[in-house]
């Protein structure tokens, strides 16, 4: 019970400081708008196939995650508050608090991305809504799991900004390939059962990453 309370405390600390500075949210929203308008400019009046659009949706999501999700750890290092957090609580609690914060952040950003995408690109029509929604939920969850531990690693390194996508991409590739496939299925109007393999991959991917991060976070977090 105490663990849950402390995890929630870490989460609300991050949440409140984010609401005060709005650093990540502002940057992310602008990033999403910029990327989407570039895509709209490049498409112009062309009839782009749904497969390409499904891929591009995840390109936007991947890069917006890469621009925002490292904040939770990098800001601790920049503000010099890492030591305080190390003294006050255990590594596992910090990890789960940050994970929770990143999950909330990526979910809100993805809601924005998908809403804008559906509104602005008329050719992007989802046929099987259940597949699309579940892909979005599981994909965002997996993305948060992978990027949290990588963010913890790069927060200790020198060139944080460029290193983050470089380190995350190989780890995220199995996830990205699976979600792109599932999104294509949802656009083609495949029945729900056809995407069950993809969902199993997504769930096991997240479980594996959370388990490994939980074990390894001690070594990353302690100086």
């Amino acid at each position: 019970m105490i663990y849950i309370q402390q995890t929630a405390a870490v989460f609300f600390k991050d949440f409140k400081s984010e609401l005060r500075t709005r650093y990540a949210i502002n940057a992310l929203v602008m990033f999403v708008i910029t990327t989407l308008s570039i895509i709209l400019f490049s498409i112009g009046g062309e009839r782009v196939s749904p497969d390409v659009l499904a891929g591009m949706l995840w390109v936007v999501i991947f890069f917006s995650a890469m621009s925002g999700l490292s904040r939770s750890f990098v800001s601790e290092e920049e503000r010099g508050t890492t030591m305080t957090l190390q003294l006050l609580t255990q590594p596992a609690i910090v990890y789960f608090g940050k994970l929770l914060f990143n999950i909330v952040l990526i979910f809100s950003i993805n809601t924005l991305v998908v809403t804008l995408y559906l509104l602005l690109i008329p050719l992007f029509v989802v046929q099987t809504t259940s597949i699309f929604l579940l892909t979005l939920v599981l994909g965002s969850f997996g993305l948060a799991c992978a990027s949290t531990i990588i963010a913890a690693i790069i927060a200790k390194a020198n060139s944080k900004g460029t290193l983050y996508p470089v380190l995350s991409f190989p780890i995220l590739l199995p996830l990205l390939m699976t979600v792109m496939n599932a999104t294509k299925l949802s656009l083609d109007g495949a029945p729900f059962a056809e995407a069950s393999g993809e969902f199993r991959v997504l769930v096991s991917y997240s479980v594996v990453l959370i388990a490994v991060s939980w074990v390894l976070f001690d070594y990353v977090w302690k100086d």
């Binding site: 531990i149 199995p174 490994v212 070594y219």
Partner: peptide, 11 residues
């Protein structure tokens, strides 16, 4: 080392 392990479990 941590990165190598994470990569090894996903790859």
């Amino acid at each position: 080392a941590v990165y190598a392990i994470i990569a090894f479990v996903t790859v």
